[in-house]
């Protein structure tokens, strides 16, 4: 019984971590219909920046949030402004294949640069949070994961409030529903897109900060987290922020349970099987209100 509770808690918290990486993607995909194939590699890049930063200054990873989030915000905004927007604006289709190819190219560049600079070996940093546990009788929970869980809850609530309660949020939702009409109503789509991608990258920066105490970083970790975040977004429904959290938790639970009762390979197989099922049965995701 205790082991089941332990598994449930572990799975949920791991899921929260996947949601951390994916939540911004869900937002920006909902608004722009751009699937960022470089999501995982962007996360890996943020981890490596953090790795160098902590190695050089031994700053506390949670303090580094105040550096990483603005940095990634600027990067995301710049990327959208100079690389992606010219492509988004020139196609009439909702989903631009060119943008998909470009983000795939970016992912490839980041991955190979990381291999060139850091080699393929996994690296980790020692932080004050690493390896610490909360002990509750027979159950023990990683402290870092609890803090990450709190962070993702704050981000979810924050993004939802931004989308539902503010003027900018209304503008973002409007352009996601119909970008041409929104433009006619006086919204600046270009600026909104910059903002959406910047928010996505800021979330990735935050995710890197809460994850570096627990996870090693290697160039290959980008691919792992990239696909998981794509799966999370499809599971949750495009553009749905709470959906991304739900998708992340489902993914975390399936993975933890599968690994415990079978083995890691079977767990990964189950994840991709579930993913294919959702794609075919409910392509708009579990929490999406949009009709296909």
């Amino acid at each position: 019984m205790n082991s089941l509770i332990q598994l449930l808690i572990d799975g949920t918290l791991t899921g929260g971590i996947y949601a951390c990486v994916a939540i911004g993607l869900s937002l920006s995909f909902g608004i722009m219909r751009i699937f960022n194939w470089a999501q995982g590699d962007t996360y890996m890049m943020a981890m490596f920046i953090l790795y160098v930063l902590i190695g050089k200054t031994s700053i506390h990873p949670y303090l580094a949030i105040f550096i990483m989030v603005p940095l990634m915000f600027l990067y995301g905004s710049g990327l959208q402004k100079y690389v992606l927007n010219p492509l988004v604006m020139r196609t009439k289709d909702r989903e631009s294949l060119d943008v998909m190819l470009t983000t795939a190219g970016i992912s490839y560049i980041i991955y190979n640069l990381a291999v060139f600079i850091f080699t393929t070996n996994a690296k980790s940093v020692d932080t004050p949070v690493s390896g610490k546990m909360f002990d509750l009788g027979s159950i023990s929970i990683s402290r870092g994961k609890v803090y990450a869980g709190i962070a993702i809850l704050c981000v979810t609530v924050g993004l939802e409030l931004l989308l539902r309660k503010t003027e900018i949020g209304r503008a973002l939702r409007a352009t996601s529903q119909d970008k041409d009409t929104a433009q006619l109503m006086g919204m600046n789509n270009v600026k909104l897109y910059n903002l959406a991608n910047a928010l996505n990258h800021a979330c990735v920066g935050l995710a890197a900060c809460v994850m570096i105490p627990m996870y090693t970083v290697s160039p290959a970790s980008g691919q792992t987290f990239g696909f998981k975040s794509l799966i999370v977004v499809v599971l949750g429904g495009k553009g749905s922020v709470p959906g991304a959290l739900l998708g992340g938790i489902i993914l975390g639970l399936v993975e933890t349970m599968g690994t415990y009762y079978f083995n890691n390979v079977v767990a990964q197989m189950m994840i991709f099987g579930l993913f294919a099922l959702i794609l075919f049965l409910k392509p708009n995701g579990l929490l999406s209100k949009e009709k296909s």
Binding site: P86, G105, S107, Y108
Partner: peptide, 19 residues
């Protein structure tokens, strides 16, 4: 060690070609 730098070029070429 520059082999991966060569493949970085693939990515750049892809982005340039698409654009």
């Amino acid at each position: 060690s520059a082999a991966s730098l060569g493949t970085v070029f693939y990515g750049i070429a892809l982005i340039l070609v698409v654009r």
